[in-house]
């Protein structure tokens, strides 16, 4: 963890708690995602990386998780119906 990232993480986690838990563990996934983004940002300052692509990949992972959970929920709902 970098110099003042503890402070930033603390504030970011406060904000995460305002977001809906779209599937069990969604907020936790967002926490990991944000911590990764912060690390990527720190790395980006000192070395050339394709940060947008890297963040896109991370967003895609959580996005797919969200999609799968929603699909599962819908199937369960349809089965029950």
């Amino acid at each position: 963890m970098s110099h003042n990232d503890q402070k930033i993480i603390k504030v970011l986690f406060e904000e995460i708690n305002r977001i809906d838990e779209k599937y069990p563990g969604y907020k936790n996934d967002l926490k990991h995602l944000l911590a990764d983004i912060l690390n990527l940002e720190r790395e980006h300052i000192i070395s050339k990386i394709n940060i947008v692509q890297k963040i896109s990949d991370q967003v895609n992972k959580v996005g797919m998780e969200l999609y799968r959970n929603r699909k599962d929920d819908l199937e369960i709902y349809n089965e029950n119906e």
Partner: peptide, 25 residues
């Protein structure tokens, strides 16, 4: 479309979190 929408939703939540954090800071 639903798949890509999920990604957009995650990105949007992240934006909300970052905006809120910046405002709080």
């Amino acid at each position: 479309g639903k798949k890509i929408n999920s990604e957009i939703e995650v990105a949007s939540d992240l934006e909300k979190i970052l905006n809120g954090a910046l405002e709080t800071m």
